[in-house]
């Protein structure tokens, strides 16, 4: 759960986004702009966090009054091996070293629901972290590194499956389904697509993050909607956006069926009036945006 250090929303003097050019980073930049909050957007071209020299580079950029949002990570498509793990940890080590030198008013660390065991079907923030792969272990270790920073209020956000038109990854889910339907006229499911998952629109991730920044929230919060649907239902939703028939193909099941549901009560308590973009609306929005881009 999270605690609001500022009961009343108060804009940070500046938000520094580390990893600003990724899928979530771009959405967050747009949201901060809409809210009129000053920001410094840093991407890998600005500072290569894998290099020790990045510490001094960051020190020249950071101010003690900044709210830092750490989004940068080498995602699984860049590698799932131990080398990627160590590079990811080095990146966090350098960010923490810089913050230790400059101080900051608030640190938000973007983790992942990969810290939970996939075999756990119902998840809350109280569910013990039990990562099953190096990617999840990386995020959980980085969470602890962030929380180990002395005198820095830390928020950990654990988003579940994030979707939106700008997603550069092609993971199993809305984005891949949409691209496959557009390109091939068919969506291929694992098995009959029985697994249930929670999908959150990237704009909701950005909106919730900004709310946390405004309240200087600390603790741990899952970013999920509380509504899970099967991949088969999801495929139908995506297919319905196309004016032409889209075939939904079932395949032989290779892995056991797992389900994932989020109890979002802590999120409701933190932001009782927050309204998620309904999945149907979010899927339609992503489709319209994709179509507009051609």
């Amino acid at each position: 759960m999270v605690n609001h250090q500022s009961a009343q929303p108060q804009a940070p003097k500046r938000v520094v986004l580390i990893g600003a050019r990724g899928f979530i980073g771009m959405a967050l930049r747009r949201r901060l702009e809409d809210e009129g909050i000053a920001q410094l957007a840093l991407g890998s071209v600005d500072v290569n966090l894998t290099e020790p020299a990045s510490v001094e580079r960051l020190v020249t950029q950071l101010r003690p009054e900044d709210a830092v949002v750490m989004l940068a990570a080498l995602t699984p498509d860049k590698g799932r091996d131990a080398g990627t793990l160590m590079r990811n940890l080095a990146m966090m080590q350098h960010v923490c070293a810089a913050i230790e030198k400059t101080g900051c008013a608030h640190l938000t660390y973007f983790s992942s629901d990969a810290v939970y065991n996939l075999a756990v079907s119902q998840v809350t923030e109280d569910t013990p972290a039990s990562p099953q792969d190096l990617y999840g272990a990386m995020h959980y270790t980085r969470e602890i590194m962030a929380k180990s920073l002395a005198q820095t209020p830390v928020l950990v956000l654990r988003p579940t499956l994030v979707y939106g038109v700008d997603d550069t990854h092609n993971a199993y889910g809305p984005n891949r389904f949409r691209r496959a339907a557009h390109k091939d006229g068919k969506i291929t499911l694992f098995g009959a697509g029985e697994e249930t998952r929670d999908h959150i629109h990237v704009d909701d991730v950005a909106a919730l993050t900004v709310r946390c920044l405004l309240h200087k929230s600390t603790g741990t919060l899952n970013l999920a909607t509380g509504r899970s649907i099967s991949f088969k239902e999801l495929a139908r939703l995506v297919a319905a956006q196309f004016g032409k028939p889209v075939e939904i193909v079932e395949t032989a099941r290779a892995n056991p069926i797992t389900h994932r549901h989020y109890d979002v009560t802590h999120l409701i308590k933190a932001f009782p009036k927050f309204r998620f973009i309904p999945l149907e609306e979010g899927i339609a929005r992503a489709h319209r945006e994709m179509s507009a881009r051609g």
């Binding site: 109890d263 009560t265 409701i268 308590k269 009782p272 009036k273 927050f274 309204r275």
Partner: peptide
């Protein structure tokens, strides 16, 4: 979990 039943129902039906 059950203590928050009313909050969850209110969230779905009214608060949002």
């Amino acid at each position: 979990h059950r203590r928050d039943w009313a909050l969850r129902v209110l969230w779905e039906t009214v608060l949002t």
